[in-house]
């Protein structure tokens, strides 16, 4: 479960990377459109864009290869319902015992007065 949340977080990071990439693309073009564009800025932004997109691609490819190794098309046929039900029955037993003991206590209190 922890590994899976880790993966989901990585995918969230990739999402953020896409946004960053788009932002740097916009910045690069904006820089170009200024009256005095500084080519250094443009180049740095463009390289950011390309690098981020490469990261995105690598990350996604990694996840997709993991999925090819790990998943099947069919649903899992097992479940933990059996032990869940048994546990709930155990809870009911305890609750019943508790109810009886509280009744005893109530009787005791009634007679103590």
């Amino acid at each position: 479960m922890a590994a899976l949340t880790q993966r989901l977080k990585e995918l969230d990071d990739i999402e953020r990377d896409i946004t960053t990439a788009m932002q740097s693309a916009g910045q690069a073009i904006l820089e170009l459109s200024k009256d005095k564009p500084s080519l250094k800025q443009v180049e740095s932004q463009t390289s950011n864009f390309v690098k981020t997109l490469e990261n995105v691609e690598n990350g996604l490819t990694k996840h997709i290869t993991y999925l090819t190794q790990v998943s099947t098309g069919q649903a899992h046929e097992g479940s933990s319902y059996a032990s869940q039900k048994d546990l709930s029955m155990a809870w009911h037993r305890i609750h019943h015992a508790r109810a009886r003991l509280m009744e005893l206590e109530r009787l005791k209190n009634k007679h103590m007065q």
Partner: peptide, 10 residues
């Protein structure tokens, strides 16, 4: 991909 991962990661 996230959805697929959640549902099908054996």
């Amino acid at each position: 991909i996230k959805q697929y991962l959640v549902l099908n990661d054996f």
